[in-house]
């Protein structure tokens, strides 16, 4: 049995639901917040600072009876662009893929320009992904590093 699957066992298996793996440990609680996991009624298991060959330290979340929408996966892709998502049905992984940044992020990132219209009007933000590490506001054209973005509330 691999090291990773041993660790997965450490944080309990789920019958049906989703496993989000390879989350940077520094952003684990942001992920919990942006996916609204604290408000879920079903079981949520969060494992932090697990050893990872690729990442050094990684974090993992298992959520029972929850399957994320494309919009939720887009939100996840902003704070954990390398995360993998496994869909579990009856204890089996039926689908597994790495989350990908979409070309356009709607209503996810907050613009860091205080005089941008998106920070002053009740409207969703819109960002264009210009490189794997950079996004540009559709409205004011300010660019931001993806690693430093704040999530729009």
């Amino acid at each position: 049995m691999t090291k990773t699957s041993n660790q997965e066992l450490l944080v309990a298996a789920i019958k049906d639901g989703t496993v989000i793996d390879h989350i940077p440990s520094s952003r684990i609680f942001e992920v919990v917040g942006l996916l609204g996991l604290q408000g879920l009624g079903s079981a949520v298991v969060v494992g932090c600072n697990l050893e990872s060959g690729q990442m050094g330290k990684k974090s993992i979340i298992k959520v029972a009876d929850k399957f994320f929408s494309p919009e939720e996966v887009d939100r996840l892709s902003v704070v954990a662009p390398g995360a993998t998502l496994s869909i579990i049905r009856d204890y089996n992984v039926v689908e597994k893929h790495q989350v990908k940044l979409p070309a356009v992020l709607r209503g996810i990132v907050r613009c860091d320009n205080p005089v941008c219209v998106t920070n002053n009007e009740p409207m969703p933000s819109r960002f264009h992904v210009v490189s794997p590490s950079k996004v540009r506001c559709h409205y004011c054209e300010h660019e931001q590093e993806l690693s430093k973005v704040q999530i729009q509330g």
Partner: peptide, 10 residues
């Protein structure tokens, strides 16, 4: 004319 950046596009 508006003081907010991106206001015209919006």
């Amino acid at each position: 004319r508006h003081y907010l950046e991106g206001a015209a596009l919006y």
